[in-house]
Amino acid sequence: MRYSYYPGCSLDATGKQYGESIHAVAKALGVELVELDDWNCCGATAYMNVNEVLSFCLSARNLALVGKAGNGKELVTACNACYTNLRKTEVYLNQFPEIREKVGQALAEANMKYEGGVVTKHFLQVLVEDVGLERIKANVKRPLTGLRVAPYYGCQIVRPYGIQDDPDNPMMMDRFLEALGATPTQYAMKVMCCGGSLMGTREEVALRLCRNLLLCAQEAKADCIAVACPLCQMNLDAYQVAINRNYGTNFSLPIVYFTQLAGLAFGLKSDELGMQRCIVPATQIAARYA
């Protein structure tokens, strides 16, 4: 299995342990991720506030690079925002000729052309749908027995441009966690927004959203929350101290990527998976299954 891989900007920085665990897990499963040569930022939500056409151009340049690289037409990313921007761009280019025309003209300035047809997948989809849960199970060396995990999908991957799953009660990550031997907890907020970039512009709103999420997961007796997006991870992890201070709470819930849990179950080393990079300590979870 070979895919073009779009890491996105966060996986070099705040989401470093996501990138590390993705590579470790892919290697263990024999999935080849070829980094898209010379990829650029997807524009996140910031560019949509500035110029819509420009935002589409950024993703279209990345999509154009996929065809050039000759690794097939499937592009894998693991950040919910990158995923949504890439998928949304594909939909808009198909649906609106005036957008296609403008984007085409802009790409031509750099002698680039996007012919269409790239399929962007989330890494979670690759593991569940392409690799398949049977093969995941076959790779489990240390089942995560007894680990209660709150699966947190975040917002954008289950929305209009997202994965084929129930938008209100997606089960893809739940089934994945089960395959690892963990117990996914039932809780009401698995697709509730974490606030995203509001943490920068309206902090009090984002803090409360994250507080509610943590509370809901804690009430479900989760040992940790599993995430699939670097912004969700940062908001819930790096701001947990601020949440406790603001609301007089006492949360100490590790926020781990689904790929880190997979790596542990596959018998990989804790530091290969960047477990030490979590701010709310996650190393005890690693130690439990080492």
Partner: peptide, 9 residues
Amino acid sequence: ASCYQCAER
């Protein structure tokens, strides 16, 4: 927050 829940529904 651009979470698209409204657009989804």
